[in-house]
Simulated scan of single mutants.
Amino acid sequence: MTVLLTGATGFVGLNIARALLDRGERVVLFAPTPPPEALSAGWLGAARFISGDVRVPDDLDRAFAAAAIDRVIHAAALTPDMRAEAEQPEVIAEVNLGGTLRLMQAARRAGVRRVLGLSSVAVYGHAAAEADGRLHEESTPTRPAALYGITKLAAEQAVHRLGALYGMETAAVRLGPCFGAREHPTGMRPLLSPHWQCVEDARAGRECVLPRAMAADWIDAEAAAGAIADLLALPAPERATFNLGGGALTTAAAWCEALVALCPGFRWRIDPEAATVRYGLERDRAPMDTTRLRAATGRAPLTDDLPGLARRYLDWRNGPEGIALCGA
């Protein structure tokens, strides 16, 4: 049987595709635009690509007809900045929520047995951490502070509700802020990770100026994709929702320090008035608790080696795949 992956040519989608293919899964990639030719000619060539829009039922039906699909990972979403949120709220809602509703209906028509929907840490908004300093799936209130979090929470709930009505197994993953290999400008995310922005400054020989240190439970995208593939393969509690973050707080400042040792001449500082790096988060956020993920899969990613991750990221960014996705 085959896995359908929506949002397959975006940052997280490409990493999930790689994780699934590495596990020997058959994969149908679904996205509005095809992956770069350099990837399709390499490891991604083992997957089949179907062009389409999650808002269009005929496109979805065509994707489900491409193979005997029994499982879906729904990663398609728009991640707006404040300007896009203000100017195109209806488009964001149509993709993030409307696309999810249409995806679930198409999955029902195709007889799919399991759907894993990608949600986001943004559903917690500015909720306070609990006594252990973390955000928990069941007990921490969901208080999304922006349209992205609002639509992701609604989509997460819709996956579970429609799954119950349609007799499907469902799971939702509240994904933390990601960085790492295969992040590239796609137009779907106006604001890329500070890690990506810092590396672009380093590669261009520019001084990198941060607005603040910026703490969050950043997670390496390859590790996150591996955990998502693990969840798809294992029996999960009925209608379960899982936190998936880096397990601990790290900062953009610490990332810059890791780059200093790897990029001769790289300079960085913190100055809110002269920042070259933009953040998507207005304030720092507590880490998510990943106990449920660890119980289900036997492991949970831990972002605890920024120097090692920086070295691996630079190897990717300076290699053929990184250049193909991000430019020379």
Rank of each mutant, 00 (worst) to 15 (best):
V12E: 00
R134D: 04
F64Q: 06
R109V: 07
F242I: 08
W268G: 06
G111V: 03
N15I: 12
A202C: 13
E87G: 13
T241I: 15
I323K: 15
A68W: 07
E183T: 07
G7L: 05
M104S: 11
W196P: 00
G125F: 15
G322A: 12
V12Y: 04
P32I: 14
A107E: 03
R113P: 09
L101F: 14
L192F: 14
D132Y: 10
L234F: 13
G327N: 10
A77D: 05
R174D: 00
A295W: 00
R62H: 10
A213D: 00
A253R: 08
G319V: 13
I73S: 01
E273G: 12
R311G: 13
Q157K: 13
Y279V: 00
S193A: 04
L281W: 14
R161Q: 04
G117S: 01
G24E: 09
S139K: 15
R285C: 09
G187W: 10
E222A: 15
D132F: 14
G187V: 08
L234A: 09
H126D: 00
L60G: 00
L262S: 14
R26P: 14
D271Y: 05
S119D: 06
L244G: 05
A110G: 13
R23K: 12
P35H: 11
R283T: 15
V121K: 06
L78R: 06
R239F: 11
A106H: 12
T79H: 12
A164L: 07
R212C: 08
A19P: 06
A172V: 07
F64A: 05
G180L: 04
L249H: 09
K152E: 03
P34R: 01
E130L: 15
M82D: 00
W268M: 11
G111M: 10
P320T: 07
E137C: 08
